[in-house]
Simulated assay, not measured.
Amino acid sequence: MFKHVTLYLDGHDSRATYGEDKAAMYSYKLKKSGLRTQVAIDANGMVLFVSKSASCRDNNDGKMLQEMGIGKKIDSMDCIALDGGYTQYIGDIVEKEKLDERNFCFPIRKKRLQQLHEEESNFNAMFGGFRSTSEAVFGDLMKTFAKFNNKEIYIQARA
């Protein structure tokens, strides 16, 4: 069903601290300080490119996608699978990056006080399973690199 998708893009939070700036780096996912990085993975599970890491508190997934200049990194024929956290940013990205909505695949958003149709619910459920591929890549990265394992604190020297 998702054979047209060529890339998965998702954010990953890693434990990090800059000393006294822990509050500015707070991650709701980790419940502690951290850095968020956007990771683009191809259909074969290869990491193709990543964004700059930024403090979690002020940099949500959508904002980081807007700032990474995705239009220069992908072909016009690519289709990127995104989770629901990005959907409100798609319009701005399409306009700014000269892309088309067909370059993105994302879950169907439920409207307030209105249930999804059965086909829409099924699509969202299958999409969630399909997107688990990117989580598997993050798991492999966490096993390989202590920096990404969320158990160790990565302390980066200030520039």
Rank of each mutant, 00 (worst) to 15 (best):
46 M>T: 12
75 D>F: 09
66 Q>L: 15
56 C>E: 10
38 Q>F: 01
70 I>G: 00
75 D>G: 04
86 Y>M: 10
59 N>L: 07
51 S>W: 12
21 D>R: 13
91 G>S: 15
37 T>N: 01
85 G>Y: 09
55 S>N: 12
10 D>A: 11
26 Y>Q: 02
91 G>H: 14
60 N>Y: 08
73 K>C: 06
68 M>V: 02
95 E>V: 12
75 D>M: 12
20 E>L: 12
50 V>L: 13
17 T>E: 05
71 G>E: 09
39 V>L: 04
60 N>I: 08
55 S>C: 14
43 A>T: 09
38 Q>C: 07
68 M>G: 01
86 Y>R: 01
80 I>G: 01
18 Y>C: 12
57 R>I: 08
79 C>Q: 11
13 D>K: 06
66 Q>N: 13
61 D>I: 02
90 I>F: 05
43 A>F: 07
81 A>K: 07
80 I>H: 01
76 S>R: 15
45 G>N: 07
70 I>T: 02
62 G>K: 05
79 C>F: 01
61 D>W: 04
31 K>Q: 13
10 D>P: 06
81 A>Y: 08
16 A>P: 05
42 D>N: 15
79 C>M: 12
71 G>Q: 09
88 Q>L: 12
84 G>S: 15
12 H>V: 13
48 L>W: 10
90 I>A: 03
78 D>C: 11
64 M>I: 10
76 S>W: 06
59 N>R: 04
83 D>E: 13
23 A>H: 11
24 A>G: 11
39 V>P: 00
84 G>Q: 10
25 M>F: 11
34 G>L: 05
62 G>N: 08
79 C>D: 02
39 V>H: 02
92 D>F: 09
75 D>V: 00
45 G>W: 09
13 D>F: 04
52 K>P: 03
12 H>S: 11
62 G>Q: 08
69 G>C: 07
67 E>L: 11
38 Q>D: 02
81 A>H: 06
54 A>W: 10
61 D>N: 08
30 L>H: 01
31 K>C: 10
22 K>W: 06
21 D>S: 11
89 Y>S: 13
92 D>Q: 15
74 I>N: 04
71 G>S: 04
88 Q>G: 14
38 Q>A: 11
18 Y>N: 08
51 S>T: 15
35 L>H: 00
36 R>M: 06
27 S>A: 04
44 N>P: 00
63 K>M: 08
71 G>N: 08
87 T>M: 14
11 G>Q: 01
18 Y>H: 12
45 G>M: 07
45 G>P: 05
61 D>P: 05
76 S>I: 14
41 I>T: 09
24 A>F: 09
16 A>K: 03
75 D>C: 10
85 G>L: 07
12 H>C: 11
39 V>N: 01
65 L>V: 14
64 M>F: 04
61 D>A: 05
89 Y>T: 05
94 V>D: 08
59 N>V: 03
47 V>D: 02
69 G>T: 06
84 G>K: 15
18 Y>Q: 13
16 A>E: 09
18 Y>D: 09
48 L>S: 03
19 G>A: 10
91 G>K: 15
21 D>K: 13
83 D>A: 07
63 K>V: 09
13 D>L: 05
25 M>S: 07
65 L>D: 03
11 G>P: 01
14 S>W: 02
46 M>D: 12
32 K>N: 14
59 N>D: 10
31 K>M: 09
33 S>F: 03
